[in-house]
Amino acid sequence: QWKVGDKCSAIWSEDGCIYPATIASIDFKRETCVVVYTGYGNREEQNLSDLLSPICE
């Protein structure tokens, strides 16, 4: 189960590419979260089910 502060990978809606991110907040009722893309600072809402394991850098 994901928690705030977890590192993950998420698909950015603008280009469909996968980027490393950190979970900033979680809404368990809606099963969504807000991620912050590492190195970019962009925030975006994602479905918890769409999150991927962190990418090894």
Results as ranks from 00 to 15, higher is better:
51 L>Y: 04
56 C>Y: 15
54 P>Q: 04
23 I>M: 00
4 V>Q: 09
32 T>K: 07
55 I>E: 12
9 S>L: 15
56 C>K: 08
56 C>V: 14
49 S>W: 09
39 G>Q: 09
12 W>H: 07
25 S>P: 04
51 L>I: 09
54 P>W: 09
17 C>E: 13
22 T>F: 08
45 E>I: 11
50 D>W: 08
9 S>N: 09
39 G>F: 13
35 V>G: 04
40 Y>V: 08
45 E>A: 06
30 R>D: 11
22 T>A: 02
49 S>L: 09
6 D>C: 11
2 W>Y: 07
31 E>T: 02
42 N>K: 09
57 E>K: 07
52 L>Q: 01
32 T>Q: 02
6 D>L: 08
28 F>E: 12
34 V>W: 10
40 Y>S: 15
4 V>D: 14
53 S>K: 12
7 K>Y: 12
29 K>C: 08
23 I>S: 06
24 A>V: 15
9 S>G: 11
45 E>C: 07
12 W>I: 08
14 E>D: 03
36 V>K: 02
28 F>R: 12
47 N>R: 14
1 Q>F: 08
13 S>M: 09
13 S>H: 08
43 R>V: 10
55 I>Y: 12
47 N>V: 04
12 W>C: 12
53 S>C: 10
9 S>R: 15
29 K>P: 06
3 K>M: 11
27 D>T: 00
13 S>N: 06
5 G>W: 03
20 P>G: 07
47 N>T: 05
27 D>Q: 00
13 S>P: 05
24 A>C: 06
26 I>P: 09
29 K>F: 12
24 A>T: 05
22 T>C: 05
30 R>C: 04
52 L>S: 02
29 K>M: 12
41 G>L: 08
41 G>V: 04
8 C>P: 00
37 Y>R: 01
11 I>V: 11
15 D>L: 08
4 V>I: 01
42 N>D: 12
26 I>A: 01
1 Q>K: 13
13 S>G: 09
56 C>Q: 14
40 Y>T: 15
47 N>I: 03
33 C>P: 00
19 Y>V: 02
46 Q>F: 07
44 E>N: 05
36 V>Q: 09
39 G>R: 08
36 V>P: 02
45 E>H: 03
12 W>G: 01
4 V>M: 00
28 F>I: 12
19 Y>G: 02
33 C>D: 00
10 A>C: 05
31 E>R: 13
1 Q>C: 15
25 S>T: 10
27 D>L: 05
38 T>P: 05
14 E>C: 09
28 F>K: 11
24 A>E: 15
52 L>D: 01
55 I>R: 10
25 S>K: 03
17 C>L: 15
44 E>F: 08
29 K>Y: 12
35 V>P: 02
3 K>A: 13
19 Y>S: 04
43 R>D: 08
45 E>T: 13
24 A>M: 13
41 G>S: 06
57 E>V: 13
25 S>I: 11
35 V>Q: 02
15 D>A: 05
21 A>C: 15
36 V>F: 05
50 D>V: 06
15 D>V: 04
19 Y>C: 03
23 I>W: 00
35 V>C: 08
43 R>M: 14
12 W>S: 13
45 E>S: 05
43 R>Y: 14
35 V>L: 06
32 T>I: 10
45 E>Y: 02
18 I>G: 01
21 A>V: 08
44 E>S: 03
30 R>S: 11
23 I>H: 00
15 D>E: 01
32 T>E: 05
45 E>G: 05
8 C>M: 00
7 K>N: 11
35 V>W: 07
13 S>C: 04
32 T>H: 01
9 S>F: 15
51 L>E: 02
17 C>N: 15
35 V>M: 06
36 V>E: 13
10 A>V: 13
17 C>I: 02
40 Y>R: 15
47 N>K: 14
16 G>C: 06
6 D>W: 10
23 I>Y: 00
6 D>H: 00
55 I>W: 12
23 I>F: 00
10 A>S: 04
48 L>K: 02
49 S>A: 13
30 R>L: 10
17 C>M: 14
3 K>W: 13
33 C>R: 00
15 D>S: 02
36 V>T: 06
31 E>G: 15
47 N>D: 05
15 D>H: 04
43 R>W: 13
43 R>N: 07
41 G>A: 05
56 C>I: 15
43 R>I: 11
54 P>N: 07
40 Y>P: 07
50 D>L: 04
1 Q>D: 14
15 D>I: 03
40 Y>W: 13
33 C>Y: 05
18 I>T: 02
52 L>H: 01
32 T>Y: 07
44 E>W: 08
2 W>E: 15
15 D>N: 10
33 C>I: 08
8 C>F: 01
31 E>K: 14
16 G>R: 01
51 L>C: 05
34 V>K: 03
14 E>T: 07
12 W>R: 10
54 P>R: 10
4 V>W: 03
24 A>Y: 14
17 C>D: 02
15 D>Q: 07
40 Y>M: 15
4 V>F: 01
29 K>D: 13
38 T>E: 14
19 Y>M: 06
57 E>D: 13
11 I>A: 06
21 A>T: 05
32 T>N: 03
15 D>C: 06
19 Y>L: 08
43 R>H: 11
48 L>I: 06
30 R>N: 13
38 T>K: 02
56 C>M: 14
16 G>F: 08
33 C>M: 02
5 G>T: 03
1 Q>W: 09
44 E>M: 10
51 L>H: 03
49 S>V: 11
56 C>R: 12
22 T>W: 11
35 V>S: 02
12 W>P: 00
27 D>E: 01
13 S>I: 08
51 L>R: 02
15 D>Y: 08
51 L>K: 01
11 I>L: 05
36 V>W: 07
30 R>A: 12
26 I>C: 02
18 I>P: 07
20 P>S: 10
43 R>P: 08
17 C>T: 01
22 T>R: 08
12 W>D: 03
20 P>E: 11
37 Y>H: 02
56 C>S: 14
46 Q>K: 15
3 K>Y: 13
11 I>D: 04
50 D>Q: 05
32 T>S: 06
41 G>M: 10
16 G>Q: 03
30 R>G: 10
52 L>T: 02
34 V>E: 10
